[in-house]
Design a protein around this nucleic acid. Structure first.
Lengths: 104, 104
DNA sequence: GGCTATTGTCAGCGATCGGCGACATTGCTA
DNA sequence: TAGCAATGTCGCCGATCGCTGACAATAGCC
């Protein structure tokens, strides 16, 4: 086992589920319970539970605060060259948008 | 001017303002207007305006979608060892929390 | 085996979100 | 200078947020 334990060195955050997983891992790594973390962030236990489960409509400000509290700030990196499916694929944008509209 | 223009290679995201700045820069870099971006993300122009201004209570899911749309996904890095002012400085957590409660 | 801490879930409530459509302001180009 | 596109702002609306407080269901420990 190395110095850094079993944490992913770099994790891409693309969905609320990613946020949830990251938050939960970080919390456990810090040896905190949901209640303690909630107290430090300034939210309810309920909030922590839901965000860890991938709640898509959580407040961004609270999420950022949570990550900062756990010493896991986000950052942007000009990661990938992007050659796969990304944007402007000439399809009906409106249709996609409509379908993507927060179902839950 | 180099190939990469005037973009920060890596930017730490700690506050909603950071998100706003990033979003705006990315949008302009992509040569998009707020209306076009909003259309692609699936939100209203209003939303884009507010988030770019640093709205703290924006939906996380929409924010992530916006960044993905602009090819600027977030990631976690074990950035810094953290020695500055960050957290658990032995002060009244509750007081800080109370003060931090989204004043808006 | 029994106990305590942790976690997941429920309902109800005030506050806020994000959308709509229109209007003022700004900026840029011709 | 005139004119158009982009941007910022307004009020109203249904939908959803996050909070409280309590109760199951696990999990981990003695």
């Amino acid at each position: 086992m190395s110095t850094y334990g079993d944490f992913e060195a770099i994790m891409l955050i693309r969905t609320p589920q990613d946020i949830g997983a990251l938050l939960r891992e970080s919390r456990k790594k810090a040896g905190l319970g949901q209640a303690e973390l909630a107290r430090r962030i300034g939210v309810s236990r309920q909030w922590v539970v839901e965000v860890e489960r991938g709640k898509p409509r959580a407040e961004m400000g609270l999420v950022l605060r949570a990550l900062n509290t756990l010493d896991n700030p986000l950052q942007t990196g000009l990661t990938a060259p992007y050659d796969g499916v990304a944007d402007t694929p000439d399809i009906d944008i409106d249709a996609i948008v409509e379908a993507a509209r927060q179902p839950r």
